[in-house]
Design a protein around this nucleic acid. Sequence first.
DNA 1: GAATAATAGTTGCATTAGCAACTATTTGCA
DNA 2: TGCAAATAGTTGCTAATGCAACTATTATTC
Lengths: 154, 154
Amino acid sequence: MKSNAPLILKLERFLPYRISILSNRISGIIAETYKDKFALSVTEWRIMAVLGEYPGSSAEEVSIKIQIEKSMVSRSLRKLLKRHLVTRETDARDRRRQNLELTQTGLDVYSQIVPVSYDYEQHLLQCFSKQEREVFNSMIDRLYRHAETVKLAP
Amino acid sequence: MKSNAPLILKLERFLPYRISILSNRISGIIAETYKDKFALSVTEWRIMAVLGEYPGSSAEEVSIKIQIEKSMVSRSLRKLLKRHLVTRETDARDRRRQNLELTQTGLDVYSQIVPVSYDYEQHLLQCFSKQEREVFNSMIDRLYRHAETVKLAP
DNA sequence: GAATAATAGTTGCATTAGCAACTATTTGCA
DNA sequence: TGCAAATAGTTGCTAATGCAACTATTATTC
């Protein structure tokens, strides 16, 4: 593709930048709440969310699912284990693997966070009509899948 | 708003999460290129982008514009100054303020990055029709503005 | 079935980011 | 004027993040 680029880049119209600050704003608000009300980082919460949905996952599986470095998952897990929100036990058949689950306490916290998160999402989506929500969601999906295939000029 | 939340939260359908991983993917690709080809972090590039668009900005103005902590801007600026990509001089009227500009070298680098960024954006947008691009852009704007007004349940 | 490769998870190290305290300067106002 | 408050920028401290090296276990292969 021959470039037809302008001489000046308007950052505030540049898609990657726009999505980045949108994400920061949206995550920032929710991160604050997780932190204040539940003393959890977003990463910690995401781990719990995966375990709520898929009990028995391994750290590796969680890492892939939420796209976070396994070292980060390992460290976050340490905190969750310390707070007894999560348990882990070595898999009987493959002793490298450790199966993770929410404890009863973990489940209690989980069931408190879910409605908070859900309501937040609903609030956010107030600015869209029902139809727009679907359009927006599908566009995000499409862009996400497409982005993977995009390579920059060498 | 009375919560009508489900018992389980499906992370991969949760808007804040979706936007976050989309942003990570899109920024990740471009960050790699800035780093490999120009030895610049995304933050450093954004500072340069602002100075390309608004020469003479102060660190404070840059910080507000790109929504990055002023301490971060200060440290990134130090690197850019060291590499002689940016100059700064104390404002004659207000000696607290320092006016920033791209040097000739800075402008050269800038004018190399602009088309790379532009082409990347164009590639990304390939998955949308012209009309969809406008819709998507306006939805991002709307959501961004709306998000600021959203408060979570106390 | 022993040597090699692959996999799960942890840790060390360097970088980045965010918050608050600090200096220097200017502004506002009694 | 002259003193308190505001503003611009820097720095110190701590936590978050990313990468690579490391340990332990299992799978592969000759």
